[in-house]
Design a protein around this nucleic acid. Structure first.
Ligand SMILES: [Zn+2]
Ligand SMILES: [Zn+2]
Ligand SMILES: [Zn+2]
Ligand SMILES: [Zn+2]
Lengths: 172, 172
DNA sequence: GACCTATATGTAACTTTATAACATTGCAAG
DNA sequence: CTTGCAATGTTATAAAGTTACATATAGGTC
């Protein structure tokens, strides 16, 4: 694991840095090394396609459509049919290394994999960047709202659209 | 407005009755009459297609895909091309008469239109019914979670998947 | 090493969901 | 009326996701 002393590192901090100026080279390298550690720990195979998809998602704090990912893969000599992208994305999602953003039909790399978490997503409608916000309280409240109706919550998606600090500043 | 004395009526009660035994004929008739009142109030045209789409959605507390709605419309002599359904659904959504369930790529009628609300949705993975849960507290918490990152929340979707009371009972 | 099996990848074909662009209809203000 | 605008109809196409089957490759067994 890299040394973090001088860096803002989403993996090691809360909240998420997607909207803050930060050392993103470190940020993404760290997420990748965590992913590798996790895969080793779980006896999973972080194959070339899977690893490359994760790298592509990690390039920016944005969500990418499966077909955008696929185009990148195809350009690099991997298969060029949808299942190639979807399978890698599904794998990453199952392992908590990426998240699906349902409002965007798109995927984003998880910035702090390994830590059990079920974040809320903040989606900037201007710059399209996506941040994870801690959502333990929200999940608990949702469980409770369900329970009030006799409903057993098993999974949930909490997504907000709005303006990130930079885009809000630019608009004002 | 119908007399509610003897009925469970989602429009007049909280929480939602989708998962409870209730007089659904009243429930849907009430929602429709509220929609009509609302349209009149706002000077909007609840045209035959739009009204029919709302009726179709109101038949059950389920989410329907745009193409399911379209098939129904086509069978009844309306246009049979996607925009016919999407336009009506978009209109209903804008007016708060229907909601889009993003996890399902589907739409459901709002059971208490008119009242300002931004509900959380509870989606039963077994019977596919959808209920609206009050979510003022959740929205507030989400706004706050965004604010903590300098993010201005403008809209959000909160959706939970799980088991409704009846399906949970059947499984046990 | 040779073999077998499970997992992963490649590929073709297709389904489902959604939008863009333009023509037509029909009500409604003047 | 007639003129304009909102709604609907229609054609075509784009975007997102899945099914089914063939091929390749990693790991374990003998
Ligand atoms: Zn970063
Ligand atoms: Zn932004
Ligand atoms: Zn009902
Ligand atoms: Zn159910």
């Amino acid at each position: 694991m890299p040394d973090h002393a001088d860096h803002g590192c989403p993996g090691c901090e809360s909240p998420d840095l997607a909207f803050a100026r930060h050392d993103h080279a470190h940020c993404s390298a760290d997420a990748l090394s965590r992913a590798e550690a996790l895969a080793a720990e779980r006896g999973l195979r972080l194959t070339p396609v899977r690893r490359r998809v994760l790298e592509i998602l990690l390039e920016e704090h944005r969500a990418m459509g499966a077909y955008d990912v696929l185009n990148r893969l195809a350009a690099e000599g991997f298969g060029n049919q949808p299942p190639v992208a979807y399978r890698a994305l599904d794998f990453l999602e199952e392992q908590g290394l990426a998240h699906r953003i349902r409002r965007l039909n798109a995927f984003t790399a998880c910035v702090h994999p390994g830590e059990a978490h079920a974040p809320a997503f903040l989606i900037c409608r201007a710059c399209n960047r996506v941040a994870e916000a801690p959502a333990e309280g929200l999940r608990a409240a949702l469980d409770q709202a369900g329970a009030a109706l006799g409903f057993a919550v098993e999974g949930s998606s909490i997504e907000a659209v709005g303006l990130c600090p930079q885009c809000a500043g630019a608009a004002a």
